[in-house]
Amino acid sequence: METAIEIKNLVTHYGDVKVLKDVSFSIPKGKTTVILGGSGSGKSTLLKHLIGLLKPTTGQILMNGGDIAVMNEQEFNEVRKRIGVLFQGAALLNSLTVADNVALPMREHTQLEESTMQVMIRMKLDLVGLSGFENYYPSQLSGGMKKRAGIARAMALDPAFLFFDEPSAGLDPITAAGLDELILKLRQAFKMTFIVVTHEMPSVFKIADYVVMLDRGDAVFAGTLDELRASDNERIRMFLERRSEKEVYSPEDYFRIIAGD
């Protein structure tokens, strides 16, 4: 199994709170890896590190032949051209049309002719099932359509890595299932590495090739879906069987849980 991203001994803090505690795992190339975890498990923080929005306290993130944790802006800008991100709320620029949103990375990083760009925009939108919506503004689209447009924009430069931050968040089950199918379709059509952060179990079982589970800032599991189902780790069982834990009663208790001691 070829490795696309390797995370070694990642430690990070928000102020004095240790959010990720010595996390190490690797993400296989050309597969869909799901990063799983409950609220406060540190999965969103981990994603922010992988896309370079946050720098860790210590540790390495080996991607594209370099350690992105210590890269300077210029070096990292080269890496950025190879990653695409779908944010939780799609994060389309509201002042631009769907077509201009998709064109944004191309206009910034390539010297393509306007006519070529128009063809590429149409191709990308067609791919996510949004052909004909070129001149719509994000505010005129539904939640699911926004996410599709977000995927088209993330794929504008044909990246090697595609990141999804909770793709089904805020969507009804039907739309969410449609998005899962789109992820599967794209995964079959392109040789990209998909990294999906989510806590939606149905979606995990549908799209994942490889699963990493975070719990309270630790990577408690990394393996295939079958290995996940067979795991006897108490936290994983609770997650899979949708069992609740002792209610958190006071802010101090809650703080202790996120701080992990």
């Binding site: 896309i51 370079g52 929005l53 800008n77 950025r80 051209k81 990653i83 991100v85 944010f87 939780q88 709320g89 994060a91 389309l92 620029l93 509201n94 944004l104 990375p105 910034e108 990083h109 924009r153």
Partner: peptide, 16 residues
């Protein structure tokens, strides 16, 4: 409002 809608983060990850 762009900051709170993650649009600024999106710009950064696009290398803009």
């Amino acid at each position: 409002s762009m900051k709170s809608a993650e649009e600024i983060d999106a710009l950064v990850t696009m290398g803009i």
